[in-house]
């Protein structure tokens, strides 16, 4: 049985001007246990919307999402979330206290959650930074805390919304490598949103491409059959890139045309 199953999932929002706009339409997808799924799509196509529905922050307007065969209703700690940007970190807690936040919510004794949080702090390479507050950390470090905070809770699946979007190319490459290692080491399932083709091929075991929004849907899923060593100069890599670029380019063009069209 698949870990997660979206069937005909749609979501509409009521805008402030009183109109009802579709953000997502007829989304169908099955996520396998332990896979690293990358969702790729042009801006505004509904990627964050899917994450909100999957995390349980919002309810779908149509269709349903099943987790282990049970429909998702509301949030739960079996779906850990890494948010876009760093607004979700608790500014009054140190790096370590942020990481152990989820464990504390479970009322575990300190002598259990402290060492465990330290373990995840080390896992994301933040050794020695445990007593710093988020404001004292760089963008990359803050994203590492978010990852560690979500992982420490040992969720069934980790949902990540463009987590490395705001990082420089070098830091991003490092973080990508480490995330692959963590995924290998923890055997976690990961649902990873990005708008970067290179990132999707580097990380994913499958890449889903969405059609242009608003009201986008899943257009195509491509299996990435490459090992852990993924080099940009690899012929297979170049091949995947071309294929995905074609699919995405087509969608970006459509989105662009739509914007240029006079209303």
């Amino acid at each position: 049985m698949s870990l997660i199953r979206f069937s005909n999932v749609g979501k509409s929002y009521d805008t402030q001007s009183g109109r009802r706009v579709p953000a997502l339409r007829g989304f169908e997808l099955e996520l396998k246990r332990g896979e690293f799924f990358c969702l790729l799509g042009p801006s505004g196509c509904g990627k964050t919307t899917i994450l909100s529905l999957l995390a349980g922050f919002e309810a779908p307007t149509t269709g349903e999402i099943l987790l282990d065969g049970e429909p998702i209703s509301g949030t739960s700690r079996d779906r850990g979330v890494v948010f876009q940007g760093d607004n979700s970190l608790y500014s009054w807690l140190t790096a370590l206290e942020n990481i152990e936040f989820g464990l504390r919510l479970r009322r575990l004794p300190r002598k259990i959650y402290r060492p465990k949080a330290m373990e995840y702090l080390r896992l994301v390479g933040l050794d020695g930074q445990q007593d710093k507050y988020p404001a004292e950390l760089s963008g990359g470090m803050k994203q590492r805390i978010q990852v560690a905070r979500a992982l420490a809770n040992q969720p069934k699946i980790l949902l990540m919304d463009e987590p490395f979007g705001a990082l420089d190319a070098q830091t991003r490459a490092t973080m990508q490598r480490e995330l692959r290692q963590i995924w290998r080491a923890t055997e976690a399932s990961i649902f990873f949103i990005t708008h970067d083709i290179d990132e999707a091929i580097t990380l994913g075991s499958r890449v889903g491409i969405m059609s242009a929004g608003p009201g986008g849907t899943l257009q195509q899923v491509i299996e990435i059959e490459m090992g852990d060593e993924r080099s940009r100069s690899d012929l297979t890599y170049v091949d995947y890139y071309a294929r995905i670029e074609r699919a995405v380019g087509h969608e970006v063009n459509r989105a662009g045309k739509r914007i240029q069209e006079p209303v």
Partner: peptide, 21 residues
């Protein structure tokens, strides 16, 4: 910020914990 609240919910916070923590 909305994400601060959402993060706590996704980590399993109860209503009371949202309030106090």
């Amino acid at each position: 910020h909305k994400n601060m609240t959402r993060a706590a919910l996704a980590l399993g916070a109860t209503r009371w914990q949202m309030y106090t923590l």
